[in-house]
Design a protein around this nucleic acid. Structure first.
Lengths: 235, 235
DNA sequence: CGCCTATTTGAAAACCGTCAAAGTATGTGG
DNA sequence: CCACATACTTTGACGGTTTTCAAATAGGCG
């Protein structure tokens, strides 16, 4: 029965994991399996809110375009995470686009079904609230970083955040790291060059390995003392 | 009866407005009236999450500090809005500080009471979700702006957003506008100088009047075409 | 009037973006 | 298996926008 596969997937999802079997079957009833290839998009910024997705497998990147043609990556999501939920509660256009990174297997839930579901099962609302909450914290942290910190600190903090979430191996291109921090590819490369010579990261093609997390913490906290060398602490 | 005053306040609140009287009395039971003077803080970034507040009257500013001593204003909130709810669902420290701007009258709700309340009355959860949702949209918009747009556009967009929300008279100092955009006070002043000579805004002490919203829209969309004039569309 | 805070202005420099070009993996087809 | 195309990474030089630092001016409140 296909529903059992779906329930298995839902059990891995941050929003549905803690639900009782009865609730899960209720959710599964409105899910549809969907597969998408490399670079396909689930929805685009400005589209009317159609549905939301649970990621069964693969990675999805959420991005916003700016007036001058640049793109900002708002988030990367993977197995068990939900995307498109921001549009689910209000009938307003998607605020960002969602694009498949490698290949992805998803569960799709229609907006109307999800709204009905949440009203019927309050426990889901509580879980969704927590997810939104987390995303808001992350967004505000990044907002602070990108307005008040310099390139070195912004990159160091991004790498720290990513490695804490998905481990030391970060499967991102330089360009993507730039789009996550709001810096150009070139600046990212130059900063990573410094990080690498300090032995904090090792770099590869579309990949970056965090070797020394504490080193990143130091870099992310380093204030710049324009004319004086780092204070001598031994005296 | 004090409860009636409280219910009157709750009726003006984005989260509670649509509730039935029965629900409102339930909420009112856990509210406490609180008054705070100029510059007092409700909570500080890093504090354990204690309680959340509904603003009965006055304005509250939410801010985050950065490693180099700068402050970023994450949001300004007024009558009927809620602050501190981000901390209410998880037992993690407040991600930002809340400071009273003029003088404020608030309703305070303990964290534990609120959690119980939300579980008991699912309708509240749905409203809170919508609020979080809106804040997430705003945060991502600002994130895009501050990483991809230049100073002129960032300020123009901020002023547009503020004037749409609270009207043409904006009671903010230059420094606060800077802390909202992530620009220095000086840059804000220089840009506003240009806006003023273009007749788009009029400026005062701790105050700014938006005279020509369309002018702001134009400024906020102006891309820079380095060497060519705007394309001729008539050909 | 005097003090404190907010606003304004100027000049120099830092930081990062832009542009251009070369180098290096990865995959594909012959 | 090699040649080639493609995409990603790297490097360098230059310039622009914004920050920084410093100092002067103006507004409000006791």
């Amino acid at each position: 029965m296909a529903d059992e596969e779906i329930i298995g997937i839902l059990r891995q999802c941050e929003v549905f994991a803690s639900l009782a079997l009865e609730d899960l079957t209720d959710v599964a009833a409105v899910c549809r399996n969907v597969r998408r290839a490399q670079r396909e998009s689930l929805f685009r910024e400005g589209d009317p809110p159609d549905s939301l997705y649970v990621i069964a497998d693969g990675r999805i990147k959420i991005l916003k375009h700016s007036s001058n043609g640049k793109e900002l990556i708002v988030g990367f999501f993977g197995k068990g995470e939900m995307v498109g939920e921001v549009a689910a509660f209000e009938d307003r256009p998607y605020p960002a686009s969602a694009e498949v990174v490698g290949e992805a297997h998803l569960l799709r839930i229609e907006r109307a079904d999800f709204v009905a579901l949440v009203s019927r099962r309050p426990a889901i609302a509580l879980r969704v609230m927590t997810v939104l909450n987390d995303r808001l914290r992350v967004a505000h942290d990044r907002l602070r970083d990108s307005t008040t910190e310099r390139a070195t600190q912004r990159i160091a903090r991004l790498l720290l955040m990513l490695s804490r979430r998905i481990g030391p191996v970060l499967p991102f291109s330089r360009e993507e790291l730039g789009q996550m921090t709001g810096l150009t590819t070139e600046t990212v490369i130059r900063e990573l060059g410094v990080f690498a010579s300090a032995g904090v990261v090792r770099s590869g093609r579309r990949k970056l390995v965090v070797v020394d997390p504490q080193g990143l913490v130091d870099l992310s906290e380093t204030d710049i003392f324009p004319l004086s060398p780092p204070a001598d602490l031994s005296s």
